[in-house]
Amino acid sequence: MKRILLLVVMTVLAGAQGALPLAAKPVECRVPGFQVDRIFALPLVMRAIEAKRLSILVVGNGSSQLPGPTGNNVSYPVRLQAALAKKLPGVEVTVATEIQPRRTSIEAVKVMPKALAVTKPTLVVWQTGTVDAMQSTDPDQFSRALDKGINIARSAGADMIFVNAQYSPRTESMIALGIYAENMRWAAMQHEVPLFDRFRLMQLWSDVGTFDLYSATKKLDMAVAVHDCIGQLLADLVIEAARTPSGR
């Protein structure tokens, strides 16, 4: 009887822990050796933080959102906003999104000027690469679209950060990300745009065992935790890049 009682108590406790808000979950997002790329400066973001107003626009595809009625409240753009607000007390942080699944970079560049005019961000977070790989966009055209996007953002008075494709082990043998990831890295280097290497990060998570990215499930739990981590680490990169002295 005692044993059953103990079991019940433990189950209740476990249930309570599961119901705790996200921030209390002991997921260790940070993995050593994640940020290997050079962190380029975000001088405009730096000034915006000093002026206590930081407005961000996330331009992305399906992997910048989560499905379901609650999806948009827990996806990484929202988590980014929360993490930045926490790390930058006194700064008003807003995050707008321009997200469209299945849109190639070439199409994304076309909507950028309008989205920038409406939201007037200081930072554009551009998540891209997956759809281009799936549609096998011409790699040269992809590179040109990246150059164009950076120029559009900069001439509208905004800095840019790249976010590359997700690491998706199950579909890995079906989507050839290689050349698109390489071209993104090269464009980032050339234009001195910080690259948030989401692919490498998720691969490290998978190796270390932070998340089981192979798992097949309809549940949103893991996806929510992954997006929370991405939001936090992206916030780290934004702040670190803003503090980096500008050579531009």
Binding site: N61, G62, S63, L66, P67, G68, G71, P101, R102, T130, V131, M134, Q166, S168, R170, T171, S173, M174, I175, L213, S215, A216, T217, K218, K219, L220, M222, A223, V226
Partner: peptide, 22 residues
């Protein structure tokens, strides 16, 4: 055959976009 298997057995809200390849 491999693709058909994956598309029937794989579901994860994290990868909605990637599953479009199927």
């Amino acid at each position: 055959a491999e693709i058909a298997y994956v598309s029937r057995n794989f579901d994860n809200p994290l990868y909605t976009e990637e599953m479009g390849v199927l």
